[in-house]
Amino acid sequence: MGVQPDDVNTGCSAISVQSLNFAYVSAPVLTDVTFTLHPAAVGLLGPNGSGKTTLLRALLGHLPLPPAAVSVLGHDMALAGRVARSRLGWMPERGGLLPGMSGVAMVSYLGELAGMPARDALQRAHEVIDYVGLAEERYRPVQDYSQGMRQRIKLAQALVHDPAWLFLDEPTSGLDPKGRAAMLGLVRDLATQKGLGVIISTHLLADAQAVCSEILVLREGRLLAHERVAPAREGAQERFEIEGFGDETAFAERLRAAGATVARDGRFTVVSVPAGRGAAVILEAGAACGYAMRRMRRRAVTLSEHFLELVEG
């Protein structure tokens, strides 16, 4: 289910990359990369050295680019990178702090540098710091922050000037489960409720699965796929994954007797039923042998299965 690049309708909120090639001195890093993105949560996936960071640098206009290869918000990044950057937010993975400043000073300063008047910047700084969930810590010097607070202040500085697109490099890096859930919640809110475009470069497929509606997959500098994240439905068969407790064997036998195929995959029982008969068959089997189900859902191809297929296949 590829997303077709539409050359015609690249509105000024879009990012469009046309046959981008880029090489450092000798080694090619990006080869013939073409895609168009409209504001959404986009996962940028790929193994180490696949060119993810280079692509983000190209989108920020930090590379010497050929004209008309990269267009962001209607600006050709080879010529008008500066103008476009006032509407872009960037959260780097490594570092990304200005030591010696308090959280709120750093965010308002970077807001001013993005072209905001000083008073607007200070007011917005407090607002986005509230949003990312930092309280009184905002008045402490940023170099004393814990990892969780660092990631939050880094997100705040990327948001202060109300960008149209956010580029996040490993936003959950170093966060514990609580911090990670909070960060993903913020990103999801921004992309789905607030209309921002977000590109998340990540090694964690679970993160991409949790927040992204589209993915870009890179390998060795080539774009392998640009797809929507959605459950894949099959034609003739419906596939369900079931998790429950009770007499597993009897349940499986009942299902087979009703014409279904049953397999085991980790914690799930995977049942393929002829299309149209749907869930009723499974419920009947469960009722007949007292098998209780916590979960009975159509099986989507998980992002991780799909990604590994693409990258290794």
Binding site: L283, E284, A292, M293
Partner: peptide, 10 residues
């Protein structure tokens, strides 16, 4: 709840 569920639905 899980135990009773399939029978209820049917």
């Amino acid at each position: 709840f899980y135990r009773a569920l399939p029978a209820w639905l049917l």
